[in-house]
């Protein structure tokens, strides 16, 4: 195996693992999460809002991790 593509395979592997982990976090934990009692429209709205915000944060974390990995790879290999 060509050693130069191993780190790139690592990035792809991590992206794959994060797709699994992220989707489990969103649909397995965040979607069923309802901290407010669903007996009022405002609470139903707050529950939905909270789910959207938490999912968006998770998506943002995925993006930040990918950008940081790219920066690390470029810094390590191209800054010399």
């Amino acid at each position: 195996m060509n050693s130069r593509i191993l780190p790139l395979m690592g990035i792809i592997g991590l992206a794959w693992a994060l797709v699994f982990f992220g989707s489990y976090m969103i649909f397995g934990l965040i979607v069923p999460f309802e901290p407010f009692p669903e007996n009022d429209h405002i609470f139903t709205f707050l529950n939905s809002l909270l789910k959207v915000v938490l999912s968006a944060i998770l998506a943002l974390v995925w993006i930040v991790i990918m950008i940081e990995l790219r920066n690390l790879y470029i810094k390590r290999n191209l800054s010399a």
Partner: peptide
């Protein structure tokens, strides 16, 4: 550019590396 970050390669070798990454995916 990331594949080439470790040093120069021929066009054929770069494409071969893209295929290896695709096969891994």
């Amino acid at each position: 550019r990331m594949i080439l970050a470790d040093g120069p390669l021929s066009e054929r070798e770069v494409v071969s590396n893209i295929f290896k990454l695709s096969a891994f995916s």
